[in-house]
Amino acid sequence: MFELIINNSTDNGRLSLILKGEVDISSAPEFKSRLYEAVGEGDKDIELFCDELTYIDSTGLGILVGALKRVKKNDCNVYIYQLKENIRKLFRITGLERVFILEEIA
């Protein structure tokens, strides 16, 4: 199970998201639908806080890449904060560490 908290009215103009729990093949369809709805046309930078994200698989990573592609069309970016080490390792293995902007603190 996962939880996605969406804040679309931040002071910095970014779409702010908090992702918690497990994103796997079971929860991926709902995650994809809610994330892409929030991202819309992709005209804002996205900040994604993941300190309580405990599991994500290749399906979830693919969904995040989909969101990144949308915002890149508008020269925006996806900033990912506070990944746990076991998940950061997956970003490293897949080369996504160089595709997203990974930071420890917002």
Binding site: D57, S58, T59, L61, G62, V65, L90, I93, T94, G95
Partner: peptide, 14 residues
Amino acid sequence: GEEGNFAKLIISSL
């Protein structure tokens, strides 16, 4: 595909 490639990289690395 993209996700399939991610999966392959993840499995072979871990």
